[in-house]
Amino acid sequence: MIRKPWRQLPSVLYALAIYGFIFLPVVVLVLFSFQDGRFPIPPLKGLSLRWYEAVWNDGRLMEALANSIAVAVGSSLTAVLLGFLSAYGLARFKLPAKGLQRALLTAPLTVSYLIIGMGLLITFNAVGIPKSLVAAGIGHVVINMPLCFAIIYSQMGDHQANIERAARDLGAREWQVITLVTAPMLWPALFASFFLSMTFSWDEFIISFLLTRFDVTLPVEIWSLLRSGLNPKTNAVGSVVFGISVVLVIVLELVVFRKGRRS
């Protein structure tokens, strides 16, 4: 098909250079997590799993990992639930000032996490709410709910409204319409927004940093690990986080997009 292969050479070289740039830090990170020595820098003195063992035995890190999962799941469930309900309300009913309501619900998307976190910190301080994982979770709902709302709202078109109308016409009550028709019909959108929220919450640093103290999330714990300088243990925990994220992405790809493509 391609008649003159050498003419493609610049493209190939360019693509390889960019892939190299993109993958360089990840490869170094993962490679030196197996370093059989005290520093994650060349030369590679041999392969070992000792730093993974160190991570496994580090109670604080493992606790932070559990905290991160709890905050991610809890805040994502809340964000999806609130996002879904508000999208349904705004898409299906006559309400005053709909444009204003939509703007308000999506406004947090345009404000940086630092400012959202700071506002919550000052407010919680003033009201007397102590720093905690719950406080961080509240912040994560604030940043993720607009996204869930936007994704789910975009999937509630006239066609979907007609399908709900048909269910009502056939005798379904409002709660039956939501549980038997709307939610199952929007399952891919609900799933996608849940997973997106999960990954954002899982990776979020600044809000958790500002709003937690004794029990912290994994990114905050890794941050304090950074103070010890270059350390293969940081490489190991970074590789673990990368691995978990990639698995999440693959699950999302398989469950949502494969399904979406079929119908």
Binding site: I163, A167, R173
Partner: peptide, 28 residues
């Protein structure tokens, strides 16, 4: 609509996409 002795066939059919044909017909 639900309490009327009428049912509607919609222009875009409005079939429940996540249900089988049997479940669609049996929904009412």
């Amino acid at each position: 609509p639900a309490k009327r002795p009428t049912t509607t066939v919609f222009q875009d059919y409005a079939l429940f996409p996540h249900m089988t044909i049997g479940a669609n017909v049996g929904f009412g």
